[in-house]
Amino acid sequence: MTSMDFLLLTKGPLFQIAIAIFALGMLVRLVEIFALGRPHNYAAARGGQLIPGLKTVYKRFNPDPGTFKRAPFDVIVGIIWHIGFVVALLLFIPHIELIKSMFGVTWPGLPNPVVDAVTAITLFALLATLIHRLTHPVKKFLSTPEDYLIWTVTFLPVLTGYLAYHRLINPYPLALGLHILAAEIFLIVLPFTKLTHIFTAFVARWYNGAIFGRKGVQS
C-alpha cells in the first residue's frame, strides 16, 4: 500500500465508518440518558428550572473564585487546551472546507500561523495535564486506564496535525493520512468513553442548574 492508498483509505471508507460509529454511538448514549427520565417532584418550587439550568451551563466555563484559588493549574491549563482544541478543530481553514463539503455550512477561519501557534500551545498544555494526572495525588488516585486512553486519543490528532502541517512526517500523504486516522480513532472511541462529556456535560450542567434553580439557588 502506498502512502497515497493509505490516505485514500482514511479519507474514504474509514472516515465513513468512523462518522457512523460516532453518530450512532452518541445517539445511543443520549437515548440511554434521557430514557431514564426524572421522577415527578411534588415539593413546591422556589424558582424556575429552565433559565437557571442554562445559566449553569454557561457558568461552569468560569469557575468560582475559591476553586480558582485552590486549583489554578487545572482551571488555566484546562481552559487553554479546551479552547486550543476547539480553535484548531473549527477555525483551521482546511477543516472548515471539509465541514463545508460535508454539511454545506461554513464560517471564516483563522490565518494558518495563528492556528499553528494555538496548536503548539495546546500540545504543551495537554502534556502538562498528563504530567499533572500522573503526579497529583487526587488525579493519580482517580485515574483509570480509560483516562490515559482518552488523553492519548485526544493528543494524537493534535500532534499528527501539527506534524503534518510542518511536514515533519514524509511523504505528505502519509502524514495527512495519519492525522485523519487519529481523528477517526478519536471519533470511534468517543461514544464509549468519558469523551462523551463533550456532549453530556451540557446535559449534566443543565440538570445541576435546574435542580438547584428549583430551590432558588443559582449553581
Binding site: 430514557a35 469557575p63 487545572d74 488525579k139 482517580l142 453530556t200
Partner: peptide
C-alpha cells in the same frame, strides 16, 4: 434517573 446518567457520563476525573 436521567440526571444521574448524565453525571456519570460526564465525569472526567479532574478531581476538582
Amino acid at each position: 434517573d436521567a440526571p444521574v446518567a448524565s453525571f456519570f457520563s460526564s465525569c472526567v476525573h479532574c478531581g476538582l
